[in-house]
């Protein structure tokens, strides 16, 4: 009887966790993607000071959610975002719009991939 109760609790934890996990990752991915978009817009407007500010806010958002993200996402993805963000900062300092936009696209692609990888799509299962 105790086994069934324990298995039931585990099943409940898994079901609730799965929903919460998908919701949290999707929410975070959208938030980060939005921040990256704002950096891109600033770069296109040639407002590099604004872009640097936006990049700093993006970094702050990642730091705030880092613990939770590391619990559910491959740490290499987080480090990849941080690395790209560091490189983006350097190119923004140099007012290099091409490289900055390239790095924004790279960060955006990683963030989108994190969100896609958590969804129960057939290509993820296969």
């Amino acid at each position: 009887m105790k086994s069934f109760i324990a298995a039931g609790i585990a099943a409940l934890f898994l079901a609730v966790g799965a929903v919460g996990y998908a919701f949290y990752v999707d929410n975070t991915a959208k938030l980060l993607a939005g921040e990256v978009e704002r950096v891109e817009e600033a770069v296109r407007r040639a407002d590099f000071d604004g872009a640097i500010e936006r990049a700093a806010m993006l970094d702050e958002t990642i730091e705030r959610r880092k613990t939770m993200l590391c619990a559910i996402v491959d740490h290499k993805e987080i480090y990849e975002i941080k690395r790209s963000l560091g490189e983006l900062g350097a190119f923004l300092e140099k007012n290099d719009d091409a490289e900055s936009l390239a790095h924004c696209a790279a960060i955006s692609s990683i963030v989108t991939r994190i969100s896609e990888n958590t969804m129960p799509y057939i290509f993820n299962i296969l």
Binding site: F13, L14, D74, H75
Partner: peptide
């Protein structure tokens, strides 16, 4: 250590269930 701990916990719990 790059793999989240939950990547081990969730499959074990799933197998248990």
């Amino acid at each position: 250590t790059n793999i989240p701990l939950l990547s081990g916990v969730v499959p074990v719990l799933t197998l248990l269930v």
